[in-house]
Computed example of a mutant assay.
Amino acid sequence: MLFDTAIIIGTGLIGTSLALAFKETKEISNIIGYDIDNDNLKVALNLGVIDEPAKISDISKADLIIFATPVESINIILRDTIDLIKEDTVVTDVGSTKLKIMRLFDSFKNKKINFIGGHPLAGSERSGPLNAKSDLFKGKKYILIKSANCDQMYFNKFERLITKIEAIPIIIDAKTHDEILSVTSHLPQVISYYLVKTLMDLKEDNENYLKLVGTGFKDTTRLSKSDPLMWIDIFKQNKNNILTAIENFEKELKVFKKNLIEDKYNEIKDDLIKISNFGF
């Protein structure tokens, strides 16, 4: 048994899926849950995902604390609970930005907290505990970042738990994480939202735009159904990297636009062949 009591703070899609996956490992004796949204918490309870509801002060009982909330709200919760966290507790999060949260925990000089920045590269445009799946993380990469105050023994312990849910731990630094994710995750989200915004604007003058939406547009804009409140926090925390990613994307669009204006279809074709053959 790796942990006695885990508290999941935030019983949405990721928090509930983690609880389901952890239960299957049988490596945690007791999983409790806290959420300001009572409906989410009730669903998680009814599904048997968490063993009992918790108050935020129950952080003091846990030897594993998982923040599965929007990234900006972690600061608010910590302000009221930091003194309740035991020194032998592992604390982690699941946020899509890492540099600011790592700096926050590294700043706690007078309290040793075994914080591990976490980011599972798994999810869905659907939110809420009803969409949770125990196998959401199987075969998926799971970013782990060790804070300055985290003991290696506790880092290794949590890494073992992640391998138990059949995720693939990837250990990198926070700065690199945020730079890369701005391109591979945050930019696609921006594009998805604003493709839909373009459609919304055009359909104001011609309703036929909506009638002619096909599967290609729907597939490309699937991410636009994602939780806006979660993404606003991400855009705030990774603003500069996202702006750089947008600038790089705009540069590529300008090249395509120029070639199209000048009827340079061979150049466009060469680009498309390279793109279609690129593997990832």
Rank of each mutant, 00 (worst) to 15 (best):
A167V: 01
F115L: 10
M200V: 13
L18A: 04
S17R: 04
N241W: 07
L2G: 10
S57D: 15
T69Y: 11
I8M: 12
M1G: 13
S127L: 00
L223H: 07
D106Y: 05
G117K: 05
I261K: 14
A54L: 08
S124A: 05
I66R: 01
K23G: 05
G139W: 09
N208E: 15
I74T: 09
F158E: 07
Y154C: 03
V190I: 15
G95E: 05
V43N: 07
T97N: 04
D51C: 07
V71N: 02
L41N: 05
F3I: 03
N241D: 15
I172C: 11
S29W: 00
I101M: 14
K274L: 13
N259T: 00
A54M: 09
L99C: 06
K141A: 13
N110L: 09
K55N: 14
N248Y: 10
S185Y: 06
K146N: 12
L104Q: 09
G48S: 09
L229T: 13
Q237K: 08
S17W: 04
K146W: 10
G216K: 05
I76D: 11
K141Y: 13
E179I: 13
F256G: 00
E247Q: 14
S17L: 05
I145D: 09
G15R: 01
P53H: 10
L260R: 07
H119Q: 04
S192E: 11
L2T: 11
K239N: 14
L195V: 12
T92R: 12
I246L: 15
A245P: 05
I36T: 13
F280M: 03
G128W: 01
N30L: 13
K203G: 00
T69F: 10
L64S: 03
L121A: 06
Y34A: 02
N75F: 15
I234G: 05
F137Y: 13
K138Y: 07
L199H: 03
I59D: 07
K98R: 02
I116A: 01
S107G: 07
I165Y: 02
L144G: 04
F249C: 06
D271F: 15
D58L: 08
K157W: 08
T184N: 02
A21R: 01
L47G: 14
K141M: 11
K203Q: 15
D270H: 08
L161V: 07
K138T: 12
S127F: 03
S107P: 07
M153H: 12
K109G: 00
S224G: 09
L181T: 14
I32E: 11
T5E: 11
G128T: 05
F249M: 10
K23I: 01
I116W: 02
E27G: 04
V71W: 03
L136V: 05
T5S: 01
D233E: 06
K157R: 15
F235H: 06
Y154G: 03
S57G: 06
T97W: 05
N248A: 12
L136W: 04
F278M: 12
E125L: 04
